[in-house]
Design a protein around this nucleic acid. Structure first.
Length: 510
RNA sequence: GGUCCCAUCGUCUAGUCUGGUCUAGGACACAAGAUUUUCACUCUUGUAACCCGGGUUCAAAUCCCGGUGGGACCGCCA
């Protein structure tokens, strides 16, 4: 007797296994579930599938929760948020599974199997070599009760198998329409190691039923698992949830995204300084689009606009360049004080104490358009915090300049700066502070743009090609092939350090 | 090997259901140009795709069939 599908109350779940860091593909599965639940006024459940006690660890449960929270994906029920259908960790539901396991035994739908893993593996190899679908041959299906008791009493290695009924299983999938499998190709599956150790298929089916899950939205790798679970549902008299199998993230060679070819943990992206809003936006566009040309979405917009039916059927290559682009977009949008806060941890190896909050914000602002990810800030702005820049003196040359030309240019800069901001010989505190007055980007620009033209006139360089003065200056201040502009740098560095760096450059040329 | 899924620019995709408006649109990347002292940002422009073969039709990216290619699964993992 199969009960009707529950669709009035939308309830979905994300069911990760805490055997390692949260996979980025898992994060997208969670996202799709979250979006689907929230746009339908439903509930989103986080369920921890830790039946594999060997590999499951508490720290991974914590990581899953932390990283999902960081992304901004919230659930209504889970290991940390109690609901009516808990507990939400499978390791705490052993008695529940036992009850249904007994039911299966009682109805003669499950049996003990005493085959050894090695002999099973040998059979599997042999079958595959012969070109047939590897499947369990049902050897232990008809062992007598006495033998079973005896084996069990002796503590012989055993597992519990479910009798897979041969039939055509057809189900509707929100992403793939109708899918059909012939279960006669399937062998009897192992659903538990023993009465206290249920396995994946069984625990999933029981929990989805008990937790009143209406829609199972999961990765495509589970598509071929679905008929087994449907058979289990039928054997237990459960309703069938509606399925939606979403496409996989792919490596650039189109294989399933794997660690071998790059980062797969959500935390890796977190650590590198990808913003949660960027990751969300990027992930959702891999396999879904609104059908319009809009590409930037916040999580709350997605709740409104997302549609599971528009999810793509084929896998999507995880394209880092596109992630970088989207991340850069969100970095540029971020208010400067918030962005600075995010950058600071990546600057912890520098001594930033000499800079005020305002100055640090200016530094970040300057490098914002260049940042693909927050961690980039380290290499982008290091020259502000390094006392003695090291660079090749050839770098100081602009176009056809020689050492002497560069030296002249820098000396002209120095002279002009000192003229406008003279060094006081009588070093009273009052005068010292006055000498820096008006040392800002605007004034520096005014003075030096003019000076650059005078220099060109003198040297017979093209008048408007101000690089003859500004390029050496910028390199002297940054020590870099590319950096922010010289006026901006000088403003933040302050007069003393600016003049010092010019002096250092001149020193290299003598 | 078996089963299932999939197939539009290098990548993500729109268009496919309801065939004509598609000499196939957008975005990333790439290239060129403008701007700038450099890089980046910004703006403009450009290169670039309907897997192949048949069929149906006045008309096919779109419907049908067959290939081919790619992927997932086939566990006492999930």
């Amino acid at each position: 007797m199969i009960k009707k599908i529950l669709t009035k109350n939308i309830r979905v779940r994300f069911a990760p296994s805490p055997t390692g860091p949260l996979h980025i593909g898992g994060a997208r599965t969670a996202l799709f579930n979250y979006l689907f639940a929230n746009q339908n006024n439903g509930s989103f459940i986080l369920r921890i599938e830790d039946t594999d006690t060997q590999r499951s660890e508490l720290k991974w449960v914590q990581e899953i929760i932390e990283e999902l929270n960081w992304l901004g994906i919230e659930w209504n029920e889970g290991p940390d948020i109690d609901g009516k259908f808990g507990p939400y960790k499978q390791s705490q539901r052993i008695d529940i599974y036992k009850k249904y396991l007994k039911k299966l035994f009682l109805e003669n739908k499950a049996y003990y199997c005493f085959c050894l893993p090695e002999e099973l593996e040998a059979k599997r190899q042999e079958q595959m070599a012969r070109g047939v679908a590897p499947k369990y041959d049902g050897k232990c299906n008809n062992i007598s009760k006495e033998i079973i008791e005896k084996n069990l009493a002796e503590g012989k290695n055993s597992v519990i198998r479910f009798k897979v009924v041969s039939k055509k299983v057809k189900f509707k999938d929100l992403v793939r329409d109708s899918v059909e499998f012939d279960t006669s190709l399937l062998g009897d599956i192992v659903i538990a190691k023993n009465m206290n150790t249920p396995l994946f298929h069984f625990a999933v089916v029981v929990d989805d039923y008990l937790m009143k899950i209406s829609h199972v939205i999961r990765g495509e790798e589970h598509l071929s698992n679905t008929p087994r679970q449907i058979l289990l549902q039928e054997a237990l008299g459960f309703y069938h949830p509606i399925y939606a199998h979403i496409p996989l993230f792919l490596n650039s060679d189109k294989s399933k995204m794997s660690k071998r070819q790059g980062d797969v943990a959500l935390s890796d992206y977190h650590k590198q300084g990808y913003l949660p809003e960027a990751l969300i936006n990027f992930m959702v566009l891999l396999g879904w689009n609104p059908g319009t040309e809009k590409e930037i979405f916040s999580l709350s917009q997605l709740v409104k606009e997302f549609s599971i039916e528009k999810v793509q059927r084929s896998g999507a290559v995880f394209n880092m360049q596109r992630l970088d682009f989207i991340n850069n977009h969100y970095i540029k949008e971020k208010p400067i004080s918030a962005l600075t806060k995010l950058c600071l941890p990546y600057l912890k190896d520098f001594d930033t104490t000499g800079f005020s909050k305002k100055e640090l914000e200016k530094i970040i602002e300057l490098h914002k358009p260049r940042m693909k990810k927050i961690s980039d800030i380290f290499l982008l702005c290091d020259y502000f915090f390094i006392d003695n820049l090291t660079y090749n003196k050839e770098m100081l040359r602009w176009q056809k300049m020689g050492d002497n030309d560069v030296k002249e240019a820098l000396e002209a800069v120095e002279k002009a700066l000192l003229k406008k901001w003279p060094v006081r010989i009588t070093s009273s505190a009052h005068n010292a502070s006055r000498s820096d007055a008006g040392w800002n980007k605007e004034n520096l620009e005014k003075v030096l743009m003019q000076e650059a033209e005078l220099f060109n006139l003198k040297k017979n360089y093209p008048l408007k090609n101000r690089g003859f003065m500004l390029w050496p200056l910028r390199v002297a201040l940054s020590g870099k092939q590319s950096s922010a502009g010289p006026f901006e740098i000088a403003e933040i560095l302050g007069k003393e350090e600016t003049l010092q760096r010019i002096q250092d450059a001149i020193g290299m040329l003598s």
